[in-house]
């Protein structure tokens, strides 16, 4: 009896199992592909074939029913993913060094500012490149930077980013402040939609395009956070930084700025 062929129309087990399985598949497919689509609240169907395609997951073009509202201010056009920046060549770094000569006045001879401008030495290249492109497009505006970037080519900006990223990170010019990490930096404030700073800015994890903050000028950091909070600065893609700064209190902004300034 165990020798009876299984895959045979005379085997009741075979016929029953296949018939039941196929039956369930056909019934559920009929309901799922023909009947249910017609009950969908958000379906836009033109006939039965359309319903089947839609239920099968064939990709639809996005509807064009409402016009896209254009903004009143320029936003960043940079595609900020790791693949945006290739690995820098020695030639690129060398060109960057030459191009960087005018920058030293504010950003220091080795990328370490003694004014309240940002330190650029060892900064993530994508962070530098993105700011340069945004200055050029007008997404970020600064009386000193905007005119200087106007004449730069895409390659110039990549070279500058490569050069400054190549310079060694050094402790900033700011005295280290002892003391505990402020709560707003360490844990953020979840219900105000503030994630811990370090989850994007490098020391826990890195979100492409974010800047290395350790050792930056406290004046600069606090000013940027306030500008993000008011929307005066708006070149952060999809409002990622405005969303955070908006929820911070003035005291928290100062704490965060002081904390990062004091880090090596």
């Amino acid at each position: 009896m165990t020798e009876e062929p299984i895959f045979s129309l005379r085997n009741r087990w075979f016929t029953t199992a296949v018939a039941v399985t196929a039956g369930i598949a056909v019934v559920s497919a009929t309901v799922g592909f023909l009947w249910l689509p017609t009950l969908q609240a958000d379906a836009r169907l033109a006939g039965m074939w359309d319903a089947i395609c839609s239920a099968a997951g064939i990709v639809r073009a996005a509807p064009n029913e409402s016009l896209v509202v254009q903004g009143t201010y320029q936003t960043s056009g940079v595609i900020a993913f790791p693949e945006t920046m290739e690995n820098a060549s020695a030639i690129s770094i060398g060109r960057g060094a030459t191009l960087a000569l005018p920058c030293t006045v504010c950003h220091g001879a080795r990328g370490l500012s003694e004014a309240d401008s940002p330190n650029l030495a060892g900064q993530y290249p994508l962070a530098i490149f993105k700011q340069l492109v945004d200055y050029k497009s007008g997404a970020r505006v600064n009386a000193i930077m905007s005119p200087r970037v106007a004449g730069m080519s895409d390659q110039d900006m990549r070279d500058l980013a490569a050069y400054y990223a190549y310079l060694p990170r050094l402790p900033g010019q700011h005295p280290a402040t002892a003391g505990a990490t402020p709560r707003i930096v360490e844990s953020g404030a979840p219900m105000r939609n503030i994630a811990p700073c370090a989850t994007c800015h490098g020391s826990v994890d890195y979100k492409a395009g974010s800047a290395w903050l350790e050792g930056q000028s406290p004046v600069y950091l606090a000013a940027q956070l306030r500008a993000f909070a008011t929307g005066a600065r708006h070149n952060d893609i999809n409002q990622q930084m405005r969303n955070i700064a908006r929820g911070m209190s003035s005291a928290e902004i100062d704490q965060a700025a002081q904390y990062y300034a004091g880090q090596p």
Partner: peptide, 17 residues
């Protein structure tokens, strides 16, 4: 968002099974 509703229903039925 990447799977069609028809397949979702089919899987639902077989899950009941």
């Amino acid at each position: 968002p990447e799977v069609g509703a028809g397949f979702k229903f089919m899987h639902s039925v077989f899950t009941a099974l």
